[in-house]
Amino acid sequence: MANLTVKLSALTLRNPVMTASGTFGYGLEFEDFVPMSKLGGIIVKGTTLLPREGNDYPRMAETASGMLNCVGLQNKGVRYFADSIYPQIKDMDTNVIVNVSGSSPENYAECAAVIEELERIPAIELNISCPNVKDGGMAFGVTCEGAASVVKAVRKAYSKTLIVKLSPNVTNIADIARVVEAEGADAVSLINTLMGMSIDIERRSSRLSIGTGGLSGPAVKPVAVRMVHQVAHAVKIPVVGLGGIMTAEDAIEFMMVGATAVEVGTANFIDPAVSGKIVEGINRWLDSHKVKDIREIIGVV
């Protein structure tokens, strides 16, 4: 069995497989299917300072090899998370990472500061790339100035491992990654969903309540692999790769272009046990290729 341990700055993962925010609930929803102790980490739902109802239904449209969603960060706010959810998940045998979103640098920072106090949360993933909210979200992640302002504010308020989740809906994702690194991020994760649209031609209207949504699933994987490759060459901090990972081979592809760890997202909807299977599959692949340490394959392409 190969060594699967990887590090994202100060954060050690027992293996590189994590679950992506918004696709794995708080882990609790998947406990019947996969032991948390099998995973490198889980990244729980997008959390904001104040509760959010999210967008109206319909929020999802199935597309060829993928899906669009416009959930819009529905969550009960960080206080509810700290008081009611955290006690249920704090003893899970994995790294529990909280995805944090906001509408201004100040409230991103305030939300992060609440999570800083939660002893068993070793890291946050800063979401500056949600395409489905009007206020904030992706607005910050698509300009260097916007990204810098949020990361700067959160870095002051948050001392543990800070991962910044990047938007693919930009001209040059490497530029954004460099700015985020300069402002003190410990790692970047990419990609968030690609903005898309799908039309019901009988009704002559969008299939989604707000018109547009974020595309995920295997349809986006080649774009994500290319962007991870690009960012891995642009920054020195670790890169977490995600976008359409369905199998261990997909995960290995991301690692070969420079991802230190990966996140499994939409695949959880199709096979709730898939994250554990990907860990096993990576292990088998490394063994059959006589690779003793997973770090040997990171960035070989």
């Binding site: 918004g22 696709t23 794995f24 609930g25 929803e29 998947f30 999210g54 239904y57 319909p58 929020r59 999802m60 449209a61 899906m67 969603n69 959930v71 529905q74 939409t266 959880n268 909807f269 709730p272």
Partner: peptide
């Protein structure tokens, strides 16, 4: 309602 995960994780099927 149209749903994705069926497990309460994706929040797509809300009413």
């Amino acid at each position: 309602n149209m749903m994705a995960c069926g497990l309460g994780a994706c929040l797509c099927c809300v009413e």
